[in-house]
Simulated assay, not measured.
Amino acid sequence: MRPLLLLFIILPILEMWVLISVGEEIGALPTIGLVFFTAVVGLALLKRQGISTVMRAQQKMQMGELPAKEMAEGIFLAVGGVLLLTPGFITDVFGFICLIPGIRQLVLGRLLSHVVVVHGAHTGYQQPGGQGADPRSGSAGHEGKGPRNVIEGDYKREDPDSEHKSD
């Protein structure tokens, strides 16, 4: 929690220092114009990248795939948009990192390499004794006797009488 608190204290101070320094070099109005310009360019880039990401996510969902990468990109785009709307040049740099596709892909690739996406949901299973249990809970049939082996898979119930019925 402390690093986040320090970020919210130190970042605004750094932003003010950079804005004052740039203002001393190029003047107050050009500095304000530059901050406004980065916000406008960032919003245009956000709109374009956001639409592209939503379209790719819809295509993946139509193919029955989980759009995990697109969801992560959506989060990055939202964070980048907020950072670009925040006045300051330091936040603008991080905002553009989130919005520029090549850089965003590089950062996301590194972050997503540490993430495991699990498709599907556990709804419970029937134990041999007839008691239902959630395989994640560690209860009902597992009294701490070591690790359990869980085999995941799909199944289809078939009515055995349907094969023998005639039309």
Rank of each mutant, 00 (worst) to 15 (best):
K69Y: 13
A57L: 06
S162W: 04
L29S: 12
D154E: 11
Q131K: 11
M1V: 07
L6N: 10
W17V: 10
L46R: 05
G153K: 10
F94S: 10
L85G: 06
L6S: 09
G81S: 02
P135K: 03
I20H: 08
I32V: 15
H114W: 14
G138V: 12
A78L: 08
R104K: 15
V54Q: 06
L14G: 12
L111H: 02
S166M: 07
V93Y: 05
T91F: 05
D92S: 15
E65V: 00
L4S: 13
F76W: 14
H122E: 12
L4I: 13
P160G: 07
I51K: 13
Q58R: 13
L106I: 05
V115M: 01
S137G: 13
G130Y: 01
T86D: 07
Q127F: 03
D167M: 14
V117F: 03
P128L: 15
V79H: 00
L6H: 11
G144E: 14
R48T: 13
F36H: 02
E25H: 06
Q126P: 00
G146C: 08
L5N: 11
G130L: 02
G120A: 03
L85H: 08
T86C: 13
L29G: 07
L19Q: 03
L19Y: 01
L77I: 07
I151D: 05
Q126T: 12
V82D: 03
T38W: 00
F94L: 14
Q105C: 04
I13F: 14
F96K: 05
F76P: 01
Q126N: 12
S21M: 10
V18F: 04
I103W: 09
A140R: 02
L66N: 02
S137N: 14
S21C: 06
V115R: 00
A68K: 01
L106A: 06
M61D: 12
T91D: 03
K156D: 03
D161T: 07
T123H: 15
T123G: 12
W17M: 09
L106S: 05
M1S: 15
V54F: 06
E24L: 04
G33K: 11
F96A: 09
L112K: 00
L4Q: 11
L99T: 04
E70M: 03
G141K: 00
D159M: 08
K156Y: 06
L14S: 12
L43Q: 14
M16H: 03
A57D: 04
L106R: 09
V40I: 15
E15S: 08
V18Y: 00
V150P: 01
L112I: 05
A72Q: 01
L11A: 07
P30A: 11
V93E: 09
D134G: 08
E73D: 06
G23P: 01
T31M: 02
I20K: 09
S139P: 00
I9T: 09
G141P: 03
L14E: 07
M16C: 10
I26Y: 13
V115L: 01
G102V: 06
S166P: 00
E143L: 04
G80W: 08
D167Q: 12
I51E: 06
M63S: 12
I97Y: 09
F76V: 04
I51T: 04
P160Y: 02
G74P: 01
N149P: 00
K165D: 03
E163A: 15
I51S: 07
G130R: 05
G102E: 03
R136Q: 13
I26M: 13
A121R: 14
V41A: 14
G146K: 06
R56Q: 13
V118K: 14
V93H: 02
